[in-house]
Each structure stands twice: as C-alpha cells, then as structure tokens.
Nucleic acid binder design. Structure first.
Lengths: 218, 218
DNA sequence: TAGATTGTTAATCGATTAACAATC
DNA sequence: TAGATTGTTAATCGATTAACAATC
C-alpha cells in the first residue's frame, strides 16, 4: 500500500482535527489495558464512528495499519501523538486568575503532555503577588513587557469578557501565535493567529436546546 | 413570507445548534450597546459567517426578520432565547469538587441564565461537609438517594476519568436526562440521554496540531 | 492458503452558498 | 416609489460511507 499524501494542498478538514484527539484518548485507554492491536471496526464501535471514517481520517497522514491485522496500538498512538505535535513542549501564559484560571493552572494533565504554564497575570491587586500552582501572579500591566522577553506559544485568556479582546490584542501584538480562549467573546484576530474557544455557556445552551427540542417548534 | 416549518422531521443539524448560542451572545452584545436593528449581512460580517447561512439557520425556526429592514435586535434575541430553552430554569447536580468543579460552582453566569447547581458531591472526605458557593459538599455515596428524591435536569461530571462512567451510570439510572461531562472520557449512554462534552485537553491538542500543521507531514 | 482488514475510489449524503422573487 | 433585505430554492461544495482490489 503506497504511503503517499492524499492531499497536497495542506488544509486538513476540521472534522478530522476534531477526531484525532478522540482517537488518541481511546488508544491511550487501550494501551493502559494492555491491548496490543485494534481494527478500524473496533475503534469505530467504541467511539461511535464508522470504520471507513477512521481509516479515511488516518489516511490523510500516512498508512499506519496492516491488511488482515489492523493497527498496532503502540505504533498508532506514537504516530497520532506526533501528528498532534506532542513530541515537543509548549510554553503557555495565563491571564485571569479567577476560579477558572486557577483550575487551569492546577490541572496536571496539561503539564504531563508538555504544555506548561510559565506565568500568570491578573488585574486584581489582591491576587497579585500570591503564588498559585506554578508561579507568582503578576500585574497585567506587565504582560506586554513579559511577552517581549519570553517567547510564548499559547496565550490563555480566562478573564471576564469585557477585557478579553484587549488581552488578545496584546498577545497578538507580541507575536504569540495561538490563543486558548475561555471568555465568552468572539475574538477578532489576524488570519495567521490560531484560536481555540472553550465557551462553557454555549455548551450548556446546546444542552438546553436539545432538552427542549421537541417542545420548541415555532 | 409564510412562517412554516422548513423541516417536519425534527432533527436540527448540529451545525445550526452550534451557531445559535453564538448568535445569542453577539446579539446580547449589540443590545448592550443599544443597537436596535441588524441585518444578516452585518451579523455575518461580525461573526465570520455568510449572511445566507445565518438566514438559513434562523429559517429552521420561523421568520423573524423583515424584508428591506433586517432583524429587530430585541425581538431576535427573545426568539433565540426561547428556541434555546432559556425561558425556564434548569436544576443541575455537580459531582467532583476539585478545582474545576469549584470553578463551575462559582460561575455566576450559569445561575443568571437559569441554570442552578443544587447539590455538590465528592469522594474526598476532607471536602465533604465544607460549604462551597451554593451548597455543602456531600459524600458521593449519597448521590443516588439524593437524585431519587430530587428531580434533576443536568448532571455535571467534573471527576477524574476513572470514575466518570460510574457517575454517569448513576445519573442515567436515576433518570437524569442530560449530562455535562468535563472528564476526559467518551461516556457510554443510552440513545435518549443527551451528553455535552467539554474536553479541555482535546481542545489544546487541536491547537498544537494546527501550530505544527506545516511541519508535520508524514 | 484462507480469512481478515487495510487504504482508496466512487457513490451518496448533507451542509453551505449564490441567486432571486417577494415585499417591507 | 426606490432601495434594501428577507426567506427559500437550486446549485455547489465538501464530508461521509460503501465497496473493493490489494495484500498481510
């Protein structure tokens, strides 16, 4: 089976990108259970995808399986880790040390995967100077100066909505290439800056929509 | 323009459901700014959608605009609120009082929208008995008994992954119709139970994928 | 070898968009 | 009225799936 790129043009469909971490997570579970081999049919069954979709997704990146056998769990895990960029570390800076920000700073799984929060900033003078998890909380006025001398891969925004665009602009201005946004705002960024949103309220509203779907016909 | 259902069969495409909360959020911003009217072209411009998509999405639920005028911001906001099920309250129960669980319990925006956490459960004996935000933390062994006598709309799972399926099963067994899952696990539920996942790590991995997209060709 | 399962192609399905008659 | 913009239809685009030759 020839291992060629199926697409030369670059863009991987966003559905594929959404599913890769799901595959990674389940394969890690299998590995923990000592399972050594898995077929696309088994993966699909466990994750509610079709086998064809899983094979099609993987084929964007190469040929990782064997006819008649399936996939070696360890090997596929290694490949997907590499594809997701997990063979390097990421430097992150967090702005907003409220409850959510603190929870993010304390979450060990990120660090374990190579994502490290190196600095925390907040406006609140009562918080500034306190240590939390990794580091001392600094005043947000010093964010720009900090970023100038400390190259950062990912800027995390866990502030109230009314300041998040401003923080975002600072990240962009200082060359931070990607933003992880927890504030309930649609951030405006240049095309080349990557943004991932975690909109808690949006997720909750999707749930309430579906809870009411039957009743809510116009 | 006749206000008919465009689809009789029921299922609203998930893309539409994803976008409705985004529309709600932006319309709220416009209302706060005192803007009284908006066209699909303006909405699309601000949110990076096409005008056609916005009109198409809304048309699943009725006709809320006027030719030559656009949409009345207040009225459209009212309609989308209703469609999302925001004209009632929701009772929630939280399991897992770690950093993330505490952050969720403290988040005022949920309550403001009518989503109320009525009880918190945890395994940790050191936490049990403490008050947090709304309520005292109860031992998780009492979850089932609690749910039997306290009808609950949404079960929130903010536990470590290895117990989340078990908690989920308890919710399902006790008739909780929907689950808001923050644990890094693909939960198995019957078809009729609704699940919304917030997978923080998956989101972070999508970001690292895209940060590395150029380099990572197989 | 026979059975199983891949990677890929072609067919299908669904979602997005462009265009426009309707009409405020 | 003339200009603007809706809601909807038809055309396009892209993603998913079924089928199968290749082959372990």
């Amino acid at each position: 089976m020839p291992s060629r790129e199926r697409k030369k043009d670059g863009g991987i469909p966003s559905g594929v990108v959404t599913r890769l971490p799901i595959y990674l997570r389940y394969l890690t579970e299998l590995q923990d259970q000592g399972v050594g081999r898995v077929s696309s049919a088994q993966l699909g069954e466990a994750l509610s995808f079709t086998a064809a979709q899983i094979r099609s997704d993987l084929s964007y990146f190469g040929s990782f399986g064997q006819q008649g056998y399936g996939y070696d769990v360890d090997e596929l895990l290694r490949q997907i880790s590499r594809i997701l960029g997990l063979n390097r570390n990421y430097v992150m800076v967090l702005v907003g040390a409220g409850n959510l920000g603190k929870a993010l700073a304390s979450y060990e799984n990120f660090r374990r995967r190579g994502f490290e929060i190196r600095a925390i900033f907040d406006v609140d003078e009562l918080l500034v100077g306190n240590y939390h998890a990794c580091c001392v909380i600094q005043p947000v006025e010093q964010l720009e100066e900090y970023l100038r001398s400390n190259p950062t891969d990912i800027g995390i925004i866990a502030t109230p909505g009314h300041v998040s665009q401003e923080i975002c602009d600072t990240f962009v201005k200082c060359g931070v290439p990607s933003i992880w946004n927890f504030s309930p705002v649609h951030l405006q960024v240049p095309d080349e800056v990557l943004v991932e949103h975690i909109h808690l309220t949006d997720s909750l509203l999707r749930l309430s929509f579906r809870l009411n779907e039957q009743r809510q016909k116009a």
